[in-house]
C-alpha cells in the first residue's frame, strides 16, 4: 500500500523543455485554419494593390498624380517605376489595420482561447507553469508578428517583380541606391514593422488573461486598436498621442531616407518596448494569480 510513498516525484526539468513547449505552441498556432486564413488575407493585399496600380498605369500615366493625401509616404506613385516600392506600399497599407488586427486576433486568443476550450487547465496541471506558458504564448505571438509582416513583404516583393520593372531605386531624399541595398532596406523595414506590432501583441495578451472567452478577447483587442487609431487622429489629444502605440508606426518610411532619420524610429521602438513591459507585467500579474475555473 505504501509503495507510492517511496516514489515521490522530484524530477529535474530538462533545460530544453521550454523549447519543446514553444515548438508545440508554434505548430498548433500555425496549423490553425484561422491563422492560415489571416496570413492568406495579408498575402492578398499586395496582389490587390499591385494589380490596381498596374491597371491604373497601363496607359502610361503615373499613379495618383501627386495627390498623395496627408499621411504616409507617397510610395505608391513609385511602384510603376520600381516593383520594390510595392513592398513599402503594402506594408504602409497593412500596418494601420490589417497587420495589427491579425496580431490582435492571435494575441487575444492566446490565453482566453485555451481557457474557453478548457485546454488551459490541462496545460497547467501538466504542469506547464503559468509564467512559462505566458512567455511561450508571447514568444509565439511575436513570431506571428514577424511571420505576418514577412508574408506581406514577400508577397509584395514577388508581385512587384512580376508586374513592374525592378532595378535601382530613388530614396525619399532623392538619392539613388542599388537594388541589392534596396532589398536590404526592405528587409530592415519589414523587421521594424514587425517590431511595431510588439505593443499590440502585449496588449492583446493582457486582454486575453482577463476573460475566459477567446472571441471577447479578440474583439476587445481589435476594438482597442481601432479606438487608439481614431484618437490618434484627433488634434485636441496631441499631448497624449505620443503615447499611443500606433503613433510612430509609419516612421518606418524614415529608413528610406538618406541618411536614415532615426529619431521617430527609435521613439517607436522605445514605445513598443514600454508597452511590452507594462502590459507584459500586467498580463503576468493577472495570469499568475488567476483562479482557473474554466
Amino acid at each position: 500500500m505504501s509503495r507510492a510513498e517511496t516514489r515521490r516525484p522530484v524530477r529535474t526539468p530538462s533545460p530544453l523543455w521550454t523549447f519543446g513547449l514553444l515548438r508545440s505552441e508554434l505548430s498548433i498556432t500555425f496549423r490553425r485554419w484561422r491563422t492560415l486564413a489571416l496570413l492568406g488575407v495579408l498575402a492578398a493585399v499586395p496582389v490587390l494593390v499591385g494589380v490596381a496600380v498596374k491597371i491604373e498605369t497601363s496607359d502610361g500615366s503615373s499613379f495618383g498624380g501627386g495627390g498623395g493625401g496627408g499621411e504616409g509616404p507617397a510610395f505608391i506613385s513609385q511602384i510603376s517605376n520600381n516593383g520594390l516600392f510595392l513592398v513599402f506600399t503594402a506594408l504602409a497599407a497593412t500596418l494601420p489595420f490589417f497587420l495589427p488586427m491579425a496580431v490582435g486576433v492571435v494575441a487575444g486568443d492566446a490565453i482566453a482561447g485555451e481557457a474557453s476550450a478548457g485546454t488551459l487547465r490541462y496545460l497547467l496541471v501538466a504542469p506547464a507553469g503559468r509564467t512559462r506558458l505566458l512567455l511561450t504564448k508571447y514568444a509565439t505571438v511575436i513570431a506571428f508578428c514577424l511571420a505576418a509582416t514577412l508574408v506581406v513583404a514577400v508577397s509584395a516583393l514577388v508581385v512587384g517583380a512580376l508586374l513592374f520593372p525592378v532595378g535601382d531605386l530613388i530614396t525619399i531624399s532623392g538619392t539613388r541606391i542599388g537594388y541589392a541595398e534596396g532589398l536590404g532596406r526592405a528587409f530592415l523595414i519589414a523587421l521594424v514593422v514587425a517590431a511595431s506590432l510588439v505593443g499590440v501583441a502585449a496588449l492583446g495578451l493582457f486582454v486575453s488573461t482577463l476573460t475566459g472567452s477567446g472571441i471577447a478577447a479578440m474583439a476587445t483587442t481589435v476594438g482597442l486598436l481601432i479606438t487608439v487609431q481614431i484618437l490618434d487622429q484627433i488634434p485636441q489629444l496631441d499631448a497624449l498621442q505620443p503615447y499611443f502605440f500606433s503613433h510612430y508606426w509609419l516612421s518606418f518610411a524614415d529608413l528610406m531616407r538618406e541618411p536614415v532619420y532615426w529619431d521617430d524610429l527609435t521613439r517607436n521602438l522605445g514605445l513598443q518596448a514600454l508597452y511590452a513591459a507594462v502590459f507584459g507585467s500586467a498580463a503576468w500579474a493577472r495570469f499568475s494569480a488567476k483562479d482557473i475555473t474554466a
Binding site: P9, A117, G118, T119, R121, Y122, V125, P127, G129
Partner: peptide, 19 residues
C-alpha cells in the same frame, strides 16, 4: 511544479484541441 508531474488528472471532463 514538483507535485503535478506525478499526478494525472481528468478534471470536469476532457478538453481537447478539435483541430
Amino acid at each position: 511544479r514538483a507535485v503535478l508531474p506525478g499526478v494525472g488528472a481528468l478534471i470536469e471532463g476532457p478538453a481537447l484541441y478539435g483541430f
